[in-house]
């Protein structure tokens, strides 16, 4: 309960939770209701500034930007969840093998992790898109791969530290097998830093997805993605500046909220670092 009390008093954490909940609520609402159809075009009302009918204005096809920004939240959350899921799953597996087995397995796996670290999401996306068709799946995989090193190193570090701790040695002495030692004794004790890592990776995934979509390597038209909307807006900067302002603000606000949540969560779960 001390953690909950600490969390509720932590301004950064509370702010982060509020912004994150707004993002999730916006995405949820957009699945059942948006002010207009995010895909419906109207040539008569193209590139309008904010009006009462279109509070965020319209794009080059007359589509309602507010509705597209709302639906874009779904894409961002989906990419965030799946990319972090991919990075965490592979990273934790590699980190576990590396930290628990040690020796040459650790040495080889860590070199592979170093190499993967040399491939930021944008490079993996370039490579994959050269071979396969660009799309949201490619961007999720590319971003997920880029997260693997952080999760792997964190898990490995925790394993190296916990492997020699008394409760693990005692469990081993009592005859616990490897699987039990890893999954019942060590892994649960690494959860707090892993949760913090996942939370701090989430906004990075959203930024990366937006960047890849902007380059045409991620979400493809006509589906609304904040990055893709900015790419489209660039061609009409002088005619309709608001077109570029709203999707960018949505990214910045979301990333800000998630960063605050991550920082707050780290302080709450690990007061030593606060």
């Amino acid at each position: 309960m001390a953690v909950t009390r600490r969390a509720l008093r932590h301004v950064t954490f509370v702010l982060g939770v509020l912004v994150t909940l707004s993002l999730v609520a916006t995405a949820g609402v957009s699945l059942v209701w948006t002010p207009a159809d995010p895909l419906s075009q109207s040539i008569d009302s193209r590139l309008q500034g904010p009006t009462s009918g279109h509070p965020f204005g319209t794009d080059q096809y007359g589509r309602d930007i507010l509705s597209r920004v709302m639906r874009g939240a779904v894409v961002s959350i989906a990419v965030g969840v799946i990319a972090v899921g991919i990075g965490a799953t592979i990273g934790i597996l590699i980190g576990t093998a590396s930290g628990y087995i040690g020796g040459w397995v650790d040495e080889v796996l860590m070199r592979v992790i170093d190499a993967v670290q040399g491939f930021p999401a944008i490079l993996s996306a370039l490579l994959f898109t050269a071979v396969f068709a660009p799309g949201i799946g490619i961007s999720m995989i590319a971003i997920g791969i880029a997260f693997v090193p952080a999760f792997a190193r964190l898990t490995r570090g925790s394993f190296l530290e916990l492997r020699a701790r008394e409760f693990v040695v005692a469990a081993h002495a009592l005859g616990a097998r490897d699987r039990r030692l890893v999954f019942r004794h060590i892994l649960p004790n690494t959860l707090a830093p892993l949760i913090v890592q996942a939370t701090t990776s989430f906004p990075v995934a959203i930024l990366a997805e937006a960047g890849l979509a902007y380059l045409g390597l991620g979400t493809q038209p006509p589906h609304p993605s904040w990055g893709l909307m900015l790419k489209e807006a660039q061609n009409f900067l002088s005619q309709s500046p608001s077109f570029a302002v709203f999707p960018g603000s949505a990214i910045a606000l979301t990333v800000l909220g998630l960063n605050l949540l991550g920082d707050g969560l780290r302080d709450v779960l690990d007061p030593k670092t606060a």
Partner: peptide, 22 residues
Amino acid sequence: SQLGIAVPSFWLGLLLILLFSV
């Protein structure tokens, strides 16, 4: 710094074009 981390570089680029060029 918190704001800087939240603003995607390509969006900042677009805003700079909007301000200094347009």
